[in-house]
Design a protein around this nucleic acid. Structure first.
Length: 309
DNA sequence: ATCCCGTCGG
DNA sequence: CCGACGGGAT
């Protein structure tokens, strides 16, 4: 026998159905109300998922409503200027403006490749720009009740603590899939992420939140609430990301800007031939250009930059 | 100072 | 597989 697979060192409770029912009952009895939980429009759900990947949910609500009012469907969004979509992202402090571009591009894909209608399977949804495994399953679940088990950091933390699933992506996927009741991805994925969001947070509130899994939970029994490591980010102040943000913000105020002018507005210590000079700025701008956010007119003399329309 | 965290591109 | 990616809230 050439099988080298080790037997799993973890196992889910025998009475899966009790575990499942307990979570679904807990979720249905009481949960946070978010407006995107009241729609099954895949476009509206996609927008909410992309926004919430980077921003606290409370701040997403307003932005989500405003975005849908301005661009109610992929038809309007695909026809929009990219600069306006990126500008909206900045105005609403939604972070990574790359994701505004992804959304804009995905809307274009839906219009041109899918005849204006969203595909319903996770595999097809993943073809859309900016849509990876998590978002594909979320949209398939919440719009079509047709997803597989989502695995995000909330779900990982829950599985790691409750059932000792090791910190390993394929183990998390297997466990999450085993646990999800067939054909109930909509309520299930909402419920397990809600559990991670309000009961099994970084510092857990098992009793306060009335966690429905206390009787099965390994961490609750042992008192060890260790969670999988989440990589910490380098500081934002002075980072390249901060200056990218400033370039976008500055270019929004002007139709176009010559490079040295832009440089001086972006950082006080800009010196054309210094450490933070033209070479540094060109580096930033060519990346922003490759990211589809900025256009450079290399024929102009001197070269000018503007937001991509 | 730390948290939030999935996707893309190389 | 790993580094890059925004900026407000706490």
């Amino acid at each position: 026998m050439t099988d080298t697979e080790a037997a799993p060192t973890w196992s889910l409770p025998d009475d899966r159905d009790s575990v499942r029912d307990a979570l679904i009952d807990w979720y249905e009895a009481d949960h946070r109300e978010f407006p995107w939980r009241r729609t099954d429009d895949p476009y509206a759900i996609l927008v909410s998922e992309v926004m919430s990947q980077q921003t606290q949910l409370d701040r997403v609500v307003e932005a989500w409503e405003a975005f849908l009012e301005r661009w109610p469907s992929t038809t309007e969004l695909a026809a929009a200027d990219r600069a306006d979509v990126v500008g909206f992202w900045t105005d609403h402090s939604l972070g990574y403006n790359n994701r505004a571009k992804y959304l804009h591009e995905a809307a274009g894909q839906i219009e041109s490749d899918y005849d204006g209608r969203f595909p319903e399977s996770p595999d097809e949804l993943q073809e859309l720009m900016g849509v990876g495994p998590y978002t594909a399953n979320a949209v398939a679940s919440f719009a079509f009740n047709n997803g597989d088990a989502v695995v995000d950091t909330n779900v990982k933390r829950v599985l790691y603590r409750a059932f000792d699933v090791p910190d390993d992506d394929s183990a998390f996927e297997d466990a999450a899939a085993d646990l999800m009741p067939a054909d109930r991805s909509r309520v299930w994925n909402n419920a397990i992420m809600e559990l991670g969001g309000v009961a099994c947070e970084q510092t857990p509130s098992c009793d306060e939140a009335g966690c429905p899994w206390r009787e099965w939970c390994s961490a609750y029994a042992s008192g060890d609430f260790t969670a999988p490591d989440v990589p910490t980010q380098p500081s934002f102040e002075g980072s390249r990301r901060q200056f990218r943000g400033r370039v976008i913000g500055t270019l929004r105020e002007y139709d176009e800007l010559e490079l040295d002018t832009l440089g001086h507005r972006v950082r006080v210590d800009y010196a054309p031939n210094g450490e933070y000079g033209r070479e540094w700025l060109r580096g930033l701008l060519t990346d922003l250009e490759a990211d589809g956010l900025v256009e450079l007119d290399r024929n102009a003399e001197p070269v000018v930059a503007r937001l991509r329309r």
